[in-house]
């Protein structure tokens, strides 16, 4: 079968979502779907169309032990939470970079004092980077931003969901220390962790930047100045001695 024909792809996607494909056809379709983004998109569109039908089915209370079974299956029981240390570390979000740098310096000095030099070298391994922790308007930690000092990639980790309204994108800005207009750096990836490429090296872009901010802007080319209020903003620090 020629799966490149749009009408065939759409028909197969609709029947897959409805559930009428039999065993082999269903398995074959699932394999194809994993390799084909257009087929996957057709499935998602049909799921949006048909799944509201399921809303009229009567609810049924699960057995009390079912969630315990799920947690056991996922290895949650008896193990620390996936992001436990991270949540703990980030509670006092505002000013965290400063605190982190302070702790880094203090720890290194303490280690210098009590541990002989050869081991100290193994402790201070973090490469020179620009680091930012951005908070939402309520002061809650929102994003971690980091980039190697001479690299051209920015790594992002969401600490809370970053969801631009429909038709908009989340744009990262550098705010120069001298108070001049913010500079658009790039569009954030949609995934909880991800990265994007910079138009120049970090050193060029961030050396004179004191803060980083994110605004939600209309999709399309990067704007020359923010048109919306800050969704996230925070200090940008140089993570080297």
């Amino acid at each position: 079968m020629n799966y490149q024909r749009p009408e065939l792809r759409d028909r197969l996607a609709s029947e897959y979502v409805l559930g009428t494909l039999h065993g082999q056809a269903r398995a074959r379709f699932e394999k194809l779907r994993r390799q084909d983004a257009l087929l996957d998109a057709a499935v998602l569109a049909w799921e949006s169309r048909l799944m509201p039908l399921a809303g009229s089915v009567n609810s049924l209370a699960p057995s009390p032990e079912l969630f315990t079974r799920i947690e056991t299956r996922l290895g949650f029981r008896g193990k620390p939470e996936k992001q436990g240390w991270f949540a703990w570390l980030l509670k006092p979000a505002v000013g965290w970079v400063a605190a982190g740098l302070f702790v880094g310096v203090a720890t290194t000095r303490l280690v210098d004092t009590i541990i002989p030099a050869p081991q100290t070298a193994q402790v201070a391994q973090l490469p020179a980077s620009y680091v930012g922790v951005l908070s939402d308007p309520q002061g809650k930690a929102g994003l971690l931003v980091s980039s190697l000092r001479h690299g051209r990639t920015v790594d992002i980790k969401q600490l809370q969901p970053v969801i631009p309204p429909a038709g908009q994108q989340a744009v990262l800005w550098g705010l120069p220390k001298n108070g001049s207009a913010p500079i658009a750096v790039g569009t954030l990836p949609k995934t909880p962790t991800g990265s994007f490429t910079l138009p120049a090296t970090s050193e060029v872009l961030f050396a004179e930047v004191g803060q980083l901010g994110v605004t939600y802007e209309p999709l399309g080319a990067l704007p020359t100045q923010p048109s919306q209020p800050w969704a996230f903003i925070g200090h940008c620090g140089k993570f080297w001695m």
């Binding site: 009567n58 049924l60 996936k82």
Partner: peptide, 23 residues
Amino acid sequence: RVALGDQAAFRALYAASAGRLLG
């Protein structure tokens, strides 16, 4: 929040949706 690995959110998500989904 579950997408960020938040187990407390996962528990709340289960509580909010398991009955409908089991149906």
